[in-house]
Amino acid sequence: MKKNNYIAVLLLMGLCFILFPNRAHAADNLGYTVSAVPSSKQIDFEQSYFYLQTTPGEEQQLKVKVKSTQKEPVKIKIYPTDAYTGEKGTIEYTEDSKLLDETLKEPVSSLVKVETPTITVENFEEKEVTIQLTPPKESYSGVKMGVLVFELDDSGEKKSMVKNKFSFRLGLVISETGDDYRDSKSLNLLEAKSTLRRGKKMVLATLQNPEPKVLSDLEIQAEVKEKESNKIIKKETVKGYKMSPNSRFDFEMDWGTATIKGGTYVLNMTVTNGYNDWKFEKEFRITNEQARDMNDKSGFKIITPTWIKVATTMLILSTGVIVILLLVRRKKLEEQWKIKKKKRKRKKRKKKEGK
């Protein structure tokens, strides 16, 4: 009988997990958990992040529960950030407005106000955070993407050379229509250039998604060649890239350890996502001064130590001397052999004359 009760309880728990998915996001290693309180404006209740429908100029209040998972107090800083496209074709989030594209108007961070930007939770207590969302007064298409960051606030601790930022991010996507936002159909190549990045010589192709929708499943094939000789210098193929709405990023092609020469180059790119295809071609020039500067400053180049250069020179000189000595010795031996041969011939002649 008890066994049957246990089975019934387990089945009931499983049914609860299916019907009421857990919206709490564990961050036990941080000392707290974060969970979104469902909003009446939620478009998709299956999502654990905020995916909200907005009306122009109509304010909304969002609620988030923050719960302590330890006795010790945890100080948490709360702030919004905006979506952008990272260097490796991933959707990332940032506070740095310089990383945002000019086509992104009124980003999420400009529409959100956290009533209590810093809170402290301790001894397993739970607090509710209120976030004010004020959508644009004018209608917008597509979506605006960002996250609410709940970050451990270490401002009161002693400063160190290296700091690890621990945080939890709660997604925030807003839309007026709730239509599919993963079907952007536009892509632009803004610029091609060569420069140093992270100490590496790079060719950078700046790609832009000008639509307020996500551009997904990109496969990029790119090649760089010398314009004059048509010689292919570098090829690169990647798959699975995606771009956040109204964003740009620099597609990187590592030049490697080869020496860069000044001249005019041509970048050819083919980009596809199974539904759309884009072909780009763009020229860019590297001056002799730029090439020399990149070659000198690159941290990734073949550097031969001085002792190897000296040893190699000595080895070459030694080899040359040995070869010369061998040739001289061979010449002497040949001369000696010729002299001996002449002497033998004279002896033979004398013997014949004596007979």
Rank of each mutant, 00 (worst) to 15 (best):
K158M: 12
V108W: 06
T116H: 13
P107E: 05
K41I: 04
N164G: 06
T134Q: 11
E102H: 12
E58S: 01
K98I: 06
V162Y: 12
T120C: 06
E58D: 06
Y84N: 05
E151L: 15
E128P: 09
T85R: 14
G86Q: 14
P80K: 03
T54M: 03
L170K: 13
F168W: 08
V37H: 06
K113F: 04
G57D: 02
V121Q: 00
L111D: 00
Q42T: 07
K71N: 00
V74Y: 04
I91K: 09
K144P: 03
K127C: 10
F45D: 02
S68W: 00
E122F: 01
E157C: 02
N164Y: 07
E115V: 14
M161P: 09
L170I: 14
T81H: 15
V173H: 08
S35H: 10
T134D: 02
G57C: 02
F168G: 09
S141G: 09
E128W: 14
K105V: 03
L170Q: 12
T120K: 03
E151I: 10
K67F: 03
V66D: 05
I174C: 02
G89L: 12
A36M: 09
Q53A: 06
L148T: 15
L100T: 08
P80G: 08
S39L: 14
T69Y: 05
E157P: 08
Q61H: 02
T134P: 06
V129Q: 08
P107Q: 03
L52V: 02
Q60V: 09
E95T: 09
K88S: 14
S141L: 05
E138Y: 12
T116W: 05
K163W: 14
L172A: 04
Q47T: 04
V147F: 07
S139R: 01
G89S: 02
L133P: 05
D96S: 13
L111M: 12
K98C: 05
V143Q: 04
V108P: 07
Q60H: 04
I119D: 00
L62P: 06
Y84I: 07
N164K: 05
P117H: 03
V162A: 03
L133A: 03
T69K: 12
T177L: 02
Q53T: 07
G57S: 15
S175E: 12
G86T: 08
A83Y: 13
E122R: 09
N123Y: 00
S39G: 11
